[in-house]
Design a protein around this nucleic acid. Structure first.
Lengths: 228, 228
DNA sequence: TGGAGACTAGTTTCCTAACGACTAGCTTAC
DNA sequence: GTAAGCTAGTCGTTAGGAAACTAGTCTCCA
């Protein structure tokens, strides 16, 4: 293991600094959804439902998970309790359900920037499921792994195509800075696809293969500390 | 993403099929940790603490998050309730704390395979925080974004170096199939790094830049539905 | 004209994940 | 002889994910 003591990156943005401005205290943890709410409210005050609709309309729902409204409302409650947002007004438009319009506070504005900075600057290990599955893939046997990864490659290929098409289409009309997530996702998905194709090739030619026993033998060996 | 109506991929592996073998019922959702437990127990029966130690010793802790033992024990309880694992014995070695040794049931063996297959074959959107942050990066302004991504690039570069070194070192002695996660992570991290470097270059030369107004103007424009 | 389906806005419930702190006996090390 | 550290497991809080549910409104369509 040698390197890598800290397990996961520090991310809580210094609880020690700046004790001014804790108007409602209660240190709140950053999350994609929380930052998104703050950033959206940075543009203009709005009510939760509109926030959701706007995020969807912008296609950002591919990236923030605003699908469960329940979470959205919970997050807003938390931000409210922490004093990062405040109620601007509760309006009842005709006989529609009542809706509460929120706005950013100064503390919220600062917090949004700090969270954004952390999230951009510090990579965090989020334990996605694919690498976890890969690390136990061996017990499906070479043909099983090949079949599954073949399906995956197909799906990833589609996603790459979609992203590329989307970028080509909107890249002409939208400023590039609004498409960075998609550029990123395209870069990463392409790399995954390339890797998958290479691996599938090695599975096909038999260059990569194994048996239960050969792996079990190594597992018993005490000299088995893969990298970080 | 466009296709993808159901928001997230189907993953529960067909609740309709196979009502034989629901000895303790209670459909349980897959998670990286749950599959890992099953796969580890596939090798041999063991107690939770040993499971954690083994995962760490193998370096798989980079990929499954077995850091909080609390979660591990909860997961095991769930697997037990679902009949996927069973108590083999509870042994009290000398005056050490009592420890319970678990083993895989037949249902557990099948479930492990099904979960693994799903996780390998079907990409799932897990909403990592970096793309979310990227999609609001614009409000840090060009110099702010550049500074943060510069730091990130440094850290990612280190990670790439660590992964490459680890693969070079262990690739000689361990069968390749046990290092797939690291190959994958290396491919993805390299792609991220490449993309970051390109972007930083564009920020440096000023080819990519923006102002709050220019972005706000587009935001007001109703023709703004970026891709999927 | 009245019923199917979709939209607006928010609530409720259940399950699970992330994280941290705690107990408690034993071993090793200074 | 006491501080650190390991073994093994527990507790509690906060938060995210997925669904269903309320309840009124609007549109379409026959």
């Amino acid at each position: 293991m040698s390197t890598r003591k800290p397990e996961t990156a520090p991310c809580t943005s210094a609880p020690a600094t700046s004790n001014l401005s804790d108007m409602a205290g209660s240190v709140i943890r950053p999350s994609p959804l929380a930052v998104s709410v703050l950033c959206m409210l940075h543009a203009e005050p709005m009510h939760p439902y509109r926030l959701q609709q706007l995020i969807k309309a912008w296609g950002k729902d591919q990236v923030v998970n605003v699908g469960n409204r329940a979470n959205l409302y919970k997050t807003i409650r938390r931000l409210l309790d922490a004093g990062l947002i405040a109620v601007l007004q509760t309006e009842r438009d005709q006989l529609y359900p009542e809706r509460t319009v929120y706005q950013l506070t100064d503390a919220g504005r600062r917090q949004a920037v700090r969270w954004l900075e952390d999230m951009l600057a510090i990579p965090r290990n989020e334990y996605p499921e694919f690498p976890a599955a890969l690390s136990f893939a061996m017990l499906l046997g070479p043909p099983g792994v090949r079949a599954m990864l073949d399906r995956r490659a197909g799906l990833v290929r589609e996603q790459v195509a979609r992203l590329a098409a989307g970028l080509a289409e909107y890249g002409a009309t939208l400023p590039r800075v609004t498409l960075l997530e998609d550029e990123y996702k395209l870069a990463v998905a392409s790399a995954e696809l390339g890797w998958l194709d290479g691996l599938l090739d090695d599975l096909k030619t038999g260059e990569l293969t194994w048996t239960e026993e050969s792996v079990a033998a190594v597992a018993a060996d005490p000299d088995a500390q893969p990298p970080g």
